[in-house]
Design a protein around this nucleic acid. Structure first.
Lengths: 341, 341
DNA sequence: AACCTTTTTGCAACCGGTTGCAGTAAATCA
DNA sequence: TGATTTACTGCAACCGGTTGCAAAAAGGTT
């Protein structure tokens, strides 16, 4: 079916090497030869077989894009950014959906069978050990949105979730809330654990503030709504730091449904600053995670690893920032007076 | 780096063919041989190179998954379903993002270079000509969510958008609305055109009903919100058939913002029945598109084409159904009286 | 024009597997 | 037990390219 290099060579009346060289940049070919070959190739509609060449070059230009979150719209943004950034560099994403698959060994094996040049694990819930298995298998790997540990075994690009937890805590403290809570994502997600840790540790400086926490079953709207309904039924806190925006928006919908008001009765602060957070009828106060930068940096890193597979693991953490919108009450007058007095 | 078949053969003290055969099902190998080889393979951590074997078998088990909509959450559901269904069959999705790329020739060339076994174009906006270019290049292709034409050139799996337009029209008619409108997605999207056509043609049977239409710039929340704001400012219709749920939800947010009420002041009916449509605080009346069936059927079809590349093009259309929720007013009493009287 | 470089080119081996064919070993049959 | 099938196994060629090496061609010098 497909035209091969051999056929082009025959038609152009040259050797196969000559054809190969015209399609390999950096190879030594005379102008005359190049023109002859290109003409034959055009006539035949030839385009080189990337997989066959990968056999000798050792490069497939395939990058495994591994994720386990296909229910959080933020990941559609993430996939969009990843696929475009990869395409811009002539790389191709081989998508792996971990939803039905928890054993890293299977993903590792599969991606090795396809000789991917590298792997990007895009997940804020998987533990470092997951991406570690790729490294152990000799596959260059970058964990995007992953957990940063003190002794990183793999490259991590993302944010400091502990610091984000602290940032959320400081924000709620500054707004004068006296009874706050963390409504996290799934309890076993690394991001949940880290955000909780930061939140609680910052709150420890303020024994006058009552702190509690619960977990939603997933980073999804539904889970956020359900969890907040439960909380409202059992007497809610004044303000919640929700695990992410999706949970926050789910929570908002539960509050609205209950007849309570945001921010008067319940304050909410999210994390991510996804597109929807900006809508006027949502207007979510949140912590912005620079996903564009994280994605680009992840790809730069994985590309760098192609030439330097044993590159020393590093963590690239990007600062987050508060985006103040309408789901937290204003800075209270009483607090102002206390401070200035 | 990676262990090759040759090394396994040497360690097991057998020929390379023997090793190859133990990893090819259906091949003739004795139990003794199999055990010997498997042991050696296990010791060495061997797993066969899928790309090398594709060279002789002509099968890569790669399927190109091509889309141009990375801003509509419904496509996250679609990607989730596709990737899982493919993985279940031992196939791998090679993701192509068309956002920056309009020329089909480039996608075709790229996917041919990677010798994909087949391609699924997942888009409700691309014209049939797009997927046709894959067929012309000899690549098995299925267009999911695509336009069904009277003389199909490629396999199409999806819904009858014209009929959906009619269905929306009939629903609005039944509710007794006298001034209705279509707020479509981008004007050049095939789904927009077809839904409009069906809507208008059905409305033509009722000259007493006033009909108008406009288009949002994209299938996105933002676009829906903007368009509805404009419409409200210039005097809105009583009820809108929105191009899809995402537009509907955007529109809802604009209505809410304007102080008007749904469904009392403005009725809205969407299309897709995405997850969010079910939320209590959205509670969108919509036309359900059976995406799970569409995805599964698309994959069955593309798999069938692997063995039968010249299979005669067919259109597989799945019926849609109204999901009645809270964004259209109740069936009016006056109308009931008219009908029974 | 003879000689020395520098480019180009083709040969042939190789990348990691698969597979038709022929030969060998095992199994079945009389 | 010998003859005949049948089941395994290995050889060698091939899939579609790449690349080191040496020969050939082209370009430069004196």
């Amino acid at each position: 079916m497909a035209v091969t290099l051999k056929e082009v060579a025959e038609r152009a009346g040259v050797s196969r090497s000559a054809v190969s060289r015209t399609f390999t940049d950096g190879a030594s070919v005379s102008g005359k030869m190049r023109r002859k070959v290109e003409k034959a190739a055009r006539d035949l509609g030839y385009s080189p077989n990337a997989l066959a060449s990968s056999l000798t070059t050792g490069r497939t230009k395939l990058i495994g894009l591994v994720s386990n979150n296909f229910h959080n719209p933020i990941f559609l943004e993430v996939f969009d950014l990843f696929t475009r950034a990869l395409q811009d560099r002539g790389l191709r994403p081989l998508l792996v959906n971990l939803t039905d698959e928890t054993d890293p060994a299977n993903s590792v094996r599969m991606l090795r069978q396809y000789s991917v040049d590298g792997v990007v694990v895009a997940s804020s819930t998987l533990p470092p050990g997951f991406s570690k298995s790729f490294r152990d298998a000799g596959v260059p790997v970058v964990h995007s949105f992953g957990r940063h540990t003190s002794n990183p075994q793999v490259h991590v690009v993302g944010i400091d979730n502990v610091e984000c937890g602290r940032m959320a805590a400081r924000t709620l403290i500054a707004r004068g809330y006296k009874n706050v809570a963390f409504m996290g994502g799934p309890q076993d997600a690394t991001s949940t654990q880290d955000r909780l840790r930061g939140f609680v540790s910052e709150m420890e400086t303020r024994p006058d503030i009552q702190v509690s926490y619960t977990f939603a079953t997933a980073y999804s709207f539904e889970a956020g709504r359900k969890e907040m309904s439960k909380l409202i039924a059992s007497g809610p806190a004044q303000a919640y730091f929700c695990g992410d925006d999706v949970l926050s928006i789910g929570a908002l919908s539960a509050v609205e449904e209950s007849g309570l008001n945001v921010p008067d009765d319940i304050g909410i602060i999210g994390l991510n600053d996804m597109e929807m957070a900006r809508w006027e009828n949502i207007d979510l106060t949140t912590i912005r995670q620079p996903i564009q930068q994280i994605v680009n940096s992840s790809i730069e890193l994985v590309v760098a690893m192609l030439d330097e597979p044993d590159r020393y693991p590093e963590a690239r953490l990007f600062p987050c920032s508060i985006v103040e919108r309408g789901t937290l009450r204003e800075f209270p007058v009483s607090q102002l007076e206390t401070k200035t007095g």
